[in-house]
């Protein structure tokens, strides 16, 4: 088991987040008072919601990039920040989608653009399919949610770091990989980060264990938002064949396939992904 992520507000991806932009954090209460969760907000301009992967909420330079043009809202999956048991108050994907609509409501977002990475990509697609009116544009980055027996989404919870790193990173020995996997030196901070990563996987596991395909293909035809699909050519975790599958299921969507990138193309190829996403969202 290994989780990839950087603490919300903490350094990630080899670059310190910009400190000139102010970041705020809000606590939201949804589902008739049962669920408390957090959202990190930065930037100004039209709203963009970013849904994080299975490793938990993280602030990273890609989000900094976006916050120069947009107001970025990064809600955390219930349970991954604050009350660890909040996730237990959400039964299944249906209620999780309802929870996110309530999050949008409380943030005053009627129909924001939604970007989702990996597990967050699956959620973004579910949210856009369940109520298409709530999502104006959709960006799926290395999204899970589909399944092929012959080219499976790999078991990121059952693989050790040695097996997982080459699947996740184009350069498993590179700076970016090192920084994303690094643990703090100080013992308590290190333990906190270990707990945070493990519990983030526990929370996302509530919705995707043991196979991250929960019927999205039966609902995804409902998506009406313009959609951009971003993938790394060397993604070993969610092989690029899935980019084509998503493109086929969402008519009119575009695919941005990146070389020299694996499962985190927005950080591995920020040079290409940032302008493409800004362009797409601005169009």
């Amino acid at each position: 088991m290994v989780a990839i992520g950087c603490p919300a507000g903490g350094p990630c991806g080899g670059v310190e987040p910009m400190t000139t932009t102010s970041q705020t954090k809000k606590t939201l209460t949804t589902m008739n008072g049962r669920v408390s969760s957090h959202v990190t907000i930065q930037g100004s301009g039209p709203p963009v919601v970013f849904l994080h992967g299975a490793g938990g909420p993280q602030w990273d330079p890609f989000l900094d990039d976006l916050s120069e043009r947009f107001t970025v809202y990064a809600p955390s999956l219930p349970g991954t920040e604050g009350d660890p048991d909040a996730v237990r108050e959400i039964r299944g994907l249906w209620e999780l989608a309802l929870h996110y609509y309530e999050v949008f409501d409380q943030l005053g977002l009627s129909s924001p653009a939604v970007i989702g990475h990996s597990f967050g990509g699956m959620l973004a697609a579910e949210i856009a399919a369940t109520n298409p009116e709530r999502v104006s544009k959709l960006v799926l980055i290395a999204a899970i949610g589909l399944w092929r027996d012959e080219q499976q989404v790999q078991d990121w919870m059952g693989l050790g770091p040695d097996d997982l790193m080459p699947l996740v990173f184009h350069e498993p020995e590179g700076e970016l990989a090192k920084q994303m996997m690094a643990l703090p030196e100080e013992e308590i901070a290190k333990q906190d980060e270990t707990i945070r990563r493990s519990w983030a996987l526990a929370c996302s596991g509530a919705f995707i264990w043991p196979i991250p395909e929960k019927g999205l293909t039966r609902r995804i035809h409902r998506v009406t938002a313009d959609t951009l699909i971003v993938w790394g050519k060397n993604d070993g975790l969610v092989p690029p064949v899935y980019a084509g599958d998503f493109a086929e299921l969402i008519p009119g969507s575009e695919v941005l396939m990146l070389d020299r990138a694996a499962h985190v193309p927005q950080l591995e190829r920020r040079d290409a992904v940032t302008p493409a996403v800004i362009d797409f969202l601005s169009g």
């Binding site: 088991m1 989780a3 660890p84 048991d85 919870m157 059952g158 693989l159 050790g160 333990q191 270990t194 707990i195 493990s198 519990w199 983030a200 996987l201 526990a202 929370c203 596991g205 509530a206 264990w209």
Partner: peptide, 22 residues
């Protein structure tokens, strides 16, 4: 036993995870 199969995240509740990690 592969240690990665030994304890899936979430198998122990959060307070036990904190206790065991400490």
């Amino acid at each position: 036993i592969d240690p990665n199969f030994f304890l899936a995240p979430g198998h122990v509740d959060h307070s036990s995870l904190v206790g065991a990690t400490r």
